[in-house]
Design a protein around this nucleic acid. Structure first.
Lengths: 202, 202
DNA sequence: GTCGGGCTCTACCAATTGGTAGGGGAGACG
DNA sequence: CGTCTCCCCTACCAATTGGTAGAGCCCGAC
């Protein structure tokens, strides 16, 4: 792999795990077996490197989601596929999800950039949600807000490991399957159109 | 307000907004109209200050949740109340939620501390969920995982402002009410016990 | 008055930060 | 051979980092 790509990869892991502010170019170079100046040769500044890393992460995320969108024939399959993709990432490359979290922090400088790269997928998802809503195949009022709720749930369940611990569940491969099953059940119930308004308080 | 408390408050806002690594003691002191050494007089190190801030945030969060738990007579009211509390914080003190997010980052040194402080509330919530599950009043398999899903959804919807923007919704007071209504509808549907397994794929 | 504790300050410090300037080696190509 | 480009390096920099040492000030108690 080219040095340029190695830097990008290592930076993604480090930024996604320790945060951008928590990662120094020196430390990054050390784990790469390089000097900091070699990093600055490829990327003129730390900010530029971060932007490149965000682009890389967005590209990988989009790429993984593409499989889902292509195969899926309806909304529920898309949700299921997205959960599959996100959970795969959570085990194989948690730093990638951490980086998305880092880049989408309120007030982040790269938030616009990140969301721009994923705009196509977001639009597609919103569109199929809109259709499904109109046809009464899923429950909800606003496709955008529904998509937002779905995203929050999936990403939260996939990444909030410490919260999971707080609930008394130690993260492991065995509990991961359970978590996924429970998440899918949760989402399926939330999208189920047949029961709107049938569950009143108390 | 005492200087000690002022430091704690300002640090909470700064840590919650810019992150711990993104906040220097010098900058913090500057916004306080003090020298950094005055901060270090009250808190012997930045790490100690962070721990104190985490405790403070946990206490405020717990305090706000207490109102909910006291009033609530059933699970759904607790969920509704929690959403109310979290959304109030999201508008009145977003940095507090930001700090919870910061403190619960995977691998965070203060994660144990934070979750310890909230253990009582977590246990109580899990307990009432367990009872409701047993009595068939809510849908689900595992109370802990269900609580985890609920938390992820609520916190995500309340804090992921940039994602919301990506969905095409500009955060404002007007859309906030919509977001909350849609979130409540989403959660209500997800918890609804009457429809388990009635929504198959396709 | 003066003593002492609580509080904030000035003065420093070594280490680390992101970044600049430029040297040198190795291979491609004339 | 020369030289040009690509790549990684050493050397250096000013600014900032968290943290130490200790002086001075205010104020209430004795």
């Amino acid at each position: 792999m080219s040095t340029r790509q190695r830097i990008l990869d290592t930076a993604l892991d480090s930024f996604g795990t320790d945060g951008v502010d928590g990662t120094s170019l020196d430390a990054l170079a050390r784990t790469l077996g390089l000097r900091k100046q070699s990093i600055l040769y490829y990327y003129p500044s730390k900010a530029a490197l971060f932007e490149a890393v965000v682009d890389e992460a967005a590209a990988r995320f989009a790429e993984a989601l593409d499989e889902v969108v292509i195969d899926a024939t309806d909304v529920w399959e898309q949700v299921e596929g997205t959960v599959r993709v996100v959970f795969r990432m959570a085990t194989q490359r948690p730093a990638l999800l951490g980086l998305l979290r880092e880049a989408s922090r309120p007030g982040s400088s790269v938030a616009v950039q990140l969301t721009g790269r994923l705009a196509g997928h977001i639009d597609a998802a919103r569109h199929s949600l809109e259709i499904a809503l109109k046809e009464g195949r899923v429950a909800g009022e606003d496709a955008r807000l529904l998509l937002f709720s779905l995203y929050s749930t999936i990403m939260g369940v996939a990444t909030e490991v410490e919260v999971l611990r707080a609930m008394g569940v130690e993260p492991s491969l065995r509990t991961l399957a359970q978590r996924r099953a429970e998440l899918l059940r949760f989402l399926r119930a939330a999208l189920n159109p047949s029961t709107e308004r049938s569950f009143a308080a108390s």
